[in-house]
Design a binder for these strands. Structure first.
Length: 727
DNA sequence: GCGGGCGTCCTTTTT
DNA sequence: GGACGCCCGC
């Protein structure tokens, strides 16, 4: 590949901070790879180069390119090889640092990582059993999001008190403190902690110095998506040698809801006022028409860096608009188009990507694809790890690895059933709190726990024996045979068979087999190490990462967020309706602009053909609703668009729903004529709202109330006239 | 104590 | 429409 002048400039500037603006498909990965190659060519030690990406996919791609260029091979634990540049995702990099140096902040390196549901179960138990509060008023998910917010703003539990300015935050403060204690006791970290603790570790001068010397050349991709802790960590790592290159695109910033903060770009310029700025503006993928239309949409944003994205691809294929009467016809049309081009042109189904705003929207499309007999695959993040059988087995592995992991112990102690019931567990917990011992210590001396009858003691003793045996075996067995051994030892297969229908049983066996496959890639490491490496990586693993690109003949379905980084010949963007995309939760300017960037990302996934679709009538929220056409469709000049011609116009409504089923869109209920009695509403009352669903009141002064949605923002409303109902 | 049945609460987006 | 929690009957 021949680099263009700006790419060339980015490649050659290796001893200076640089800021690279890279628009969609400007070959930034290729540029970065050339830069690495060039560095090595100037005798820079490869292992002192660190490149960080957001997704496993991106890091895999970069590794492949580097392998090719340098003619070398990456292996699973790349850090063992001293002669390769480090290419990592943010999360695996932080975990690597923690594995090596978490002792600097007095934690044990056998820590485990808790996922979202582990986290919620801890928070729930704190709210219920420790604070004796009603989990319906103090919703665990909501409290969890407060805590997550705090962590990403770098507010530690011990400092949270200073920020308490409302009743709810008082509760959050208590939960936060207790939650962190529990994590510490369990030797566990949650996702946010991975960042916070890494930063803490790097505040140790000796450790920091070690990494500054280790990685003298830093490259960060997708910098617009970094959040505060990530920014701080990168700043620390780069502060000594100042060889930091960051790549970003403001138009593709779609993670502000995860605290990604574009101000980090401004901070970068402040930290490195002498930084060189380079723009990569040539798009090497899409046709001019798609690029023009995408530019036009994004230019409606008020915060937007002027783009002169251009391409030399001169084909002017129009964007096709499927303006369907019903959701069923929308999906059927998509299926037909795919089927037709597959049949007529004998092309692979793998050319097609179907995008939607939220995961739940895949269903209607799946049905149509199924009807046409088109093979497809829905990509759901973390779905693999979320499955019960996988969680069960991984919980066993986690406990073997870290016996302090109480959450996992609780998960497995009665799975399969050992008749160790919740009351027994409660007694164990009380005992543990009273005598300050670990579960394992209790198990060892179970006969001293007088609160338990001999039957329960015996059951636990048996469980403990199993555990000991598994731990013993983990020292000698490679990780995939350890899994075999666990399954056999706990009679897991029989448990599944009893517990499920034959079909489900088959599906679960499939998943376990898949887990086996994943684990067996770690077999060549020594047993303990393979267990620990596998556990870290499985948690970060997703369906998406297992997907071999274009190797199979199926249509791919995913959310737009997931599609970032990918390119397909033919792309369908579906459900283009107001309230859905843009989402009804994102109607404020700031959020709306992020939705628009999301549309930009979606459009630029297409290389050759782009289809956009909406339906006049769709079955949604257990009703038939009509939503107006998305503003994003209107924002594309009609000269770029042609309308899809439906073949059998008269058949629309025989396929569709009868008119009487149709109801008013619940999102667009006109302001209520009924005046609410203001005195009926109290703080902490839960109310329903036709547009925003379920809320609770967090403050009230006469008729003006602040109402908080469970996971998102606070809205001010006048209770008297707002269409709210007490529930 | 367990499991089935019924009521409640939901659905952004993900490392 | 489905997941999950809770209640009540064995």
């Amino acid at each position: 590949m021949q680099l263009n002048p700006s790419q060339e400039q980015a490649k050659n500037q290796i001893n200076w901070p640089i800021l690279i603006l890279a628009w969609a498909w400007s070959w930034k990965t290729a540029t970065l790879t050339s830069r690495i190659e060039y560095m090595i060519w100037t005798w820079i030690n490869p292992s002192s180069i660190l490149a960080v990406t957001f997704t496993n996919k991106a890091s895999k791609e970069m590794k492949e390119r580097i392998s090719k260029k340098l003619n070398i091979q990456y292996q699973i634990n790349q850090y063992k090889n001293q002669n390769l540049p480090f290419v990592w995702t943010f999360h695996s990099l932080w975990i690597f640092i923690l594995k090596n140096h978490i002792e600097a902040i007095d934690m044990n390196k056998n820590f485990v990582i808790y996922d979202e549901s582990d986290k919620l179960s801890i928070i729930k138990s704190i709210i219920k059993d420790e604070l004796w509060l009603d989990e319906k008023k103090y919703i665990p998910r909501s409290i969890a999001s407060f805590i997550s917010n705090a962590k990403n703003a770098l507010i530690l539990a011990k400092d949270y008190e200073k920020y308490v300015d409302s009743h709810i935050k008082e509760i959050v403060n208590k939960v936060y403190l207790s939650y962190q204690n529990k994590l510490l006791e369990n030797n566990a970290l949650d996702f946010d902690d991975i960042l916070v603790k890494t930063l803490e570790v790097l505040k140790n001068d000796e450790v920091l110095n070690y990494y500054q010397e280790k990685w003298k050349y830093l490259m960060i991709d997708e910098y617009q998506d970094t959040n505060a802790p990530q920014y701080e960590i990168v700043k620390l790592l780069a502060s000594k040698y100042r060889n930091l290159a960051v790549v970003w695109d403001d138009s593709q910033s779609i993670y502000s809801w995860r605290w990604a903060d574009m101000r980090n770009i401004l901070n970068f310029k402040k930290d490195y006022p002498d930084a060189l700025e380079i723009k990569l503006e040539q798009n090497y993928r899409s046709t001019q028409n798609i690029i023009n239309a995408a530019n036009e949409v994004i230019s409606k944003n008020t915060i937007w860096i002027k783009k002169t994205l251009f391409t030399t691809n001169s084909i002017w294929e129009s964007i096709t608009y499927i303006d369907a009467p019903s959701d069923r016809i929308e999906s059927q049309t998509i299926a037909k188009i795919i089927k037709k081009s597959a049949n007529d042109l004998n092309e692979s189904y793998a050319k097609n990507l179907i995008l939607y705003r939220t995961n739940s929207q895949s269903r209607s499309i799946e049905e149509a694809l199924m009807m046409e007999g088109i093979p497809y695959k829905v990509i759901w993040w973390l779905k693999f790890y979320d499955r019960k059988e996988i969680k069960d087995l991984i919980a066993y592995l986690k406990v073997i690895h870290n016996p302090n992991d109480v959450v996992s112990i609780k998960r497995i102690i009665n799975t399969p059933s050992r008749k160790i019931w919740p009351t027994t567990l409660k007694k164990l917990d009380d005992y543990r709190d009273e005598f300050w011992v670990t579960y394992l210590q209790i198990f060892e001396n179970i006969s001293e726990v007088d609160e338990l009858n001999s039957w329960a003691q015996n059951a636990i003793k048996k469980f403990y024996e199993i555990l000991l045996d598994l731990m013993e075996n983990s020292k000698i067995k490679e990780v995939s045979s350890l899994l075999d051994y666990i399954i056999q030892k706990i009679w897991y297969d029989e448990y599944l068979k009893d517990d499920t229908t034959p079909d489900e049983y088959e599906a679960r066996l499939e998943n376990i087999k898949e887990l086996q496959n994943v684990l067996s890639t770690y077999n060549w490491l020594d047993p303990r190490e393979s267990l620990s490496t596998a556990l870290d990586e499985i948690l970060l693993l997703t369906d998406f990462d297992k997907k071999e690109e274009n190797s199979n003949n199926y249509v791919t379905l995913m959310t737009i967020h997931t599609s970032k980084w990918l390119e397909y010949d033919r792309v369908f963007i579906t459900w283009l309706e107001e309230w859905l995309f843009p989402s009804f939760r994102s109607m404020e300017l700031k959020d709306l602009e992020e939705e628009r960037r999301l549309m930009y990302v979606a459009m630029t996934r297409a290389k050759e053909e782009l289809y956009i679709s909406r339906a006049w009538e769709r079955f949604q929220f257990w009703n038939y609703v009509t939503n107006p056409e998305s503003r994003f469709v209107k924002e594309i000049d009609t000269k770029y668009i042609k309308n899809y011609e439906f073949e059998i116009k008269n058949n629309f409504f025989t396929n569709s729903f009868s008119i009487k089923d149709h109801v008013e869109n619940p999102f667009r209920v006109k302001k209520s004529l009924i005046e609410n009695d203001v005195d009926n509403f109290e703080i902490w009352d839960r109310v329903s709202h036709p547009k925003f669903w379920f809320w609770s009141i967090i403050s009230k002064s006469w008729d003006l109330a602040e109402i908080k949605f469970q996971t998102s923002g606070i809205k001010k409303m006048n209770i008297k006239i707002a269409p709210v109902k007490k529930i």
